[in-house]
Simulated assay, not measured.
Amino acid sequence: MTKISRYILVNLLGWKIKSEFPNIKKSIIIFAPHTSYWDGFYGKIYLMQLGINYKFLSKKEFFKFPLNYFFKIYGSIPVSKTKEYIDYVAELINISNELHIVLSPEGQLAKTIRWKKGYYYMAVRATVPIVVGYIDYKKKEIGIKKVIYNPTDISIVRKEIAQLYADVTAKYPENFSPELKV
């Protein structure tokens, strides 16, 4: 499936894959910008071609019949906006031999000025790195910007992430605001 996914993404859809996925077994993968449902489609194909074990975090509202079947097949698990959910995700990671949790820290498709912080707390609780993934529609490339191996200070991490996304163009740029407000 990895070769087919890569062929679809690169040869049929014309995307460039930038950088290799790091040799790590567990992580929190943030994937931005997220301004369109197309981001999830391209992101899914990108992740499939990597050959890693991953789960998407998706709004729990999407898990109603009949969409719940689609999201489960897609590899999603429902998100609950509670502190216990951070512990739940950390435990999922800790009991797995290999698992990467993928989420969009913007939390929605509409413009936000401050990203959700759950990704940071999940990574800290599970003691895993944060993989900074991206999709750039202007350059038509998708990949990994950086791995933050030791996220110890949320302010520093958020500023670094904002800098990493500063040159990335969303499908709908007017809806993308990298983590500028900390």
Rank of each mutant, 00 (worst) to 15 (best):
I17A: 09
V79L: 14
S76H: 12
K171A: 09
V89C: 13
G143Q: 05
P105H: 08
A166Y: 09
L12E: 02
V168C: 03
I52A: 07
V124N: 03
K16W: 09
Y137P: 02
Y134S: 00
L99V: 10
K81E: 05
T169P: 01
P178S: 04
K159V: 03
Y85A: 10
S76P: 05
S177G: 00
K83G: 02
K83W: 11
L12V: 03
Y149T: 07
Y46I: 12
P78A: 10
I156Y: 10
F56D: 00
Y7P: 02
S36I: 07
V89E: 04
H34D: 01
N23R: 10
T82W: 11
P129M: 07
I142M: 03
P66N: 11
K18R: 15
F71R: 03
A123R: 11
Y69G: 01
I8V: 15
A162Q: 13
S58T: 12
L47G: 09
I77T: 02
L99G: 06
Y46A: 03
I148Q: 09
N94P: 00
G75S: 06
G43N: 06
N53Q: 12
V124R: 14
G43E: 05
Y37S: 04
Y134H: 04
T112V: 15
V131L: 11
E61N: 11
I73F: 15
Q108F: 05
A170C: 09
S19D: 08
V102P: 05
L9M: 04
I24Y: 13
E84V: 05
S96K: 11
F71V: 07
I45H: 08
K138V: 01
P78T: 13
V124G: 04
I28F: 09
P105Q: 05
F31K: 10
E91G: 00
K16A: 02
T112L: 01
K25P: 00
Y121V: 10
Y165Q: 07
D167Y: 11
L164N: 06
S155G: 08
E84I: 05
Y54G: 04
G14A: 10
Y69P: 00
L99K: 07
P66W: 12
V79S: 01
L99N: 07
K55A: 12
Y149A: 09
V128F: 13
K72E: 03
I17E: 08
V168S: 03
S104E: 00
V124K: 15
Y88C: 00
Y149E: 11
Y85R: 00
Y85M: 13
I130V: 12
M1W: 14
M1C: 04
K139P: 01
I24P: 06
H100C: 01
P66S: 08
G118I: 04
G118Y: 13
P178C: 05
P66E: 09
I95Q: 15
Y54W: 14
Y42T: 02
L50S: 06
K140I: 07
H100P: 00
E91V: 03
K64M: 06
D39C: 07
Y37E: 00
K140P: 01
G133R: 12
S36E: 04
